[in-house]
Amino acid sequence: MSETIEKLERLDKKRKEHEKKEIERSSIYLKIFRANRATGEQAHYDTVEVPVQRSTTVLDALLYAKGYKDHSIGIRYSCRMASCGSCGMKINGIPRLACYTKVSELYGDTITCEPLSNFPHIRDLATDFTQFFEHHKDMQPYIQNENADIKDPSKLSEFVQSPEDVDKFLQFSYCIKCGCCYSACPTVAMDTKFPGPQALAQAYRYFADSRDAATEERLELVDDRHGIFRCHFAGSCSTVCPKGVDPALGIQLLKGHMLGYSSNEKKIADLKERLMRK
């Protein structure tokens, strides 16, 4: 109980420190990257002045600019509450969610908005996520267990998981696929075949799930020339993640299992079960 109170006090202190850093302004300049690759339009920046309040997010400011200054600005967004992961973009050079970044958190009178790096560019602030989602799909992001046959309902069974079991993967299941980690990763920037932090963290998410039985297959998927060992722990993915997923942690833990540093608790549980049966 005292630990929980201490944790809450610590979080409250952090929040207050965060609020102290806020900068009050009545207006800002948005410097927006503009280009349309389909028409061959050259890349340039448009600067627009936007009125802001303490709670204005970068997405609010962009939508104001789109609504009242220039209707042709291309942005992708949906939920406006950091749940859908659509509005990822580089804000002042760092990948962030526009709906989750308040203008008052950013220094300077000019805020630069650019499309996410490492994604093929479409138009203005919109990028193509096809390859990113392909990498995600390659990791087979679903539970694989012969007792959980979705085609035959009679085979379905209940899986028991303790809260401790859930804690091992829950953090990684908070990923909203916004692409901020993929954009910040220096390995993705150099290697097009590298799955990226998002996909590898998902590989760990299912690997660590006690319901999943495809451990060997998952390890084979990531153990490739362009696979998990191309990650050299720059930590940028975890720095920019807006949901606290910490992809770098999942990737290093998975590497630890592959190198034999960490004990695979699923294997131990399996062995125990076999011994019990004997």
Binding site: K14, Q171, A208, D246, Q252, L254, Y261, S262
Partner: peptide, 20 residues
Amino acid sequence: EGGKGLGKPGRPDYPYDAVS
């Protein structure tokens, strides 16, 4: 890179600080 000294996965609280 072997997963040592990074901490354990948990339930992240806002404002998020990466455990790793």
